[in-house]
Amino acid sequence: MTAGEKLKDKPGYEHLNEPLHMLVEAEFPEDESLDHYKKQQLRELAMLNGTLREESPSMSPSMSPSMSPFNNAGMKCAETGR
């Protein structure tokens, strides 16, 4: 009999009767710069998918598509060669 089996019926050790599991929690700080990149990536994805809705001038992105590290200008599709 293991030590865990000996303790599982004692007060405070009720968790030993449950299937083995793990809970992982993390807190991430608010980071506006990462939010900016996420918004830009989502905008570029919408452009690629053809679902981009034009934004109002007050909400125009601060980074143009040509400045993006994800800009694929001049790249060709492997399958079609376009």
Rank of each mutant, 00 (worst) to 15 (best):
L23M: 13
K6E: 07
G81V: 06
E5N: 14
T2G: 14
F28H: 11
E55W: 00
S66M: 02
E44H: 10
H36Q: 12
L34E: 11
G50F: 10
Y13V: 02
S64G: 06
R43N: 04
G4P: 11
M22K: 14
H15T: 09
K8S: 02
H36K: 15
G50H: 06
S58R: 12
Q40F: 15
H36D: 08
N49Y: 10
A78E: 14
M75W: 11
L7V: 02
A46T: 00
P69K: 05
E79C: 15
C77P: 00
L23D: 13
P29V: 04
M67E: 11
G81Q: 06
P69R: 04
P57Y: 06
Q40C: 13
F28Y: 15
A78S: 13
A73L: 07
E54L: 14
K76D: 02
H21C: 08
E55N: 06
E18I: 04
H15E: 09
S56A: 08
R53E: 14
S64T: 04
P65V: 01
F70L: 07
E27I: 01
S33K: 08
V24E: 12
P29S: 05
G74I: 02
C77T: 02
P65N: 04
H15D: 12
E5Y: 14
A26W: 15
A78T: 09
G4S: 08
H15S: 06
E5D: 13
E14D: 04
E30H: 14
P11W: 04
S66R: 01
K8I: 01
A73I: 13
L16N: 01
P57Q: 07
R43L: 03
H15M: 06
A73G: 05
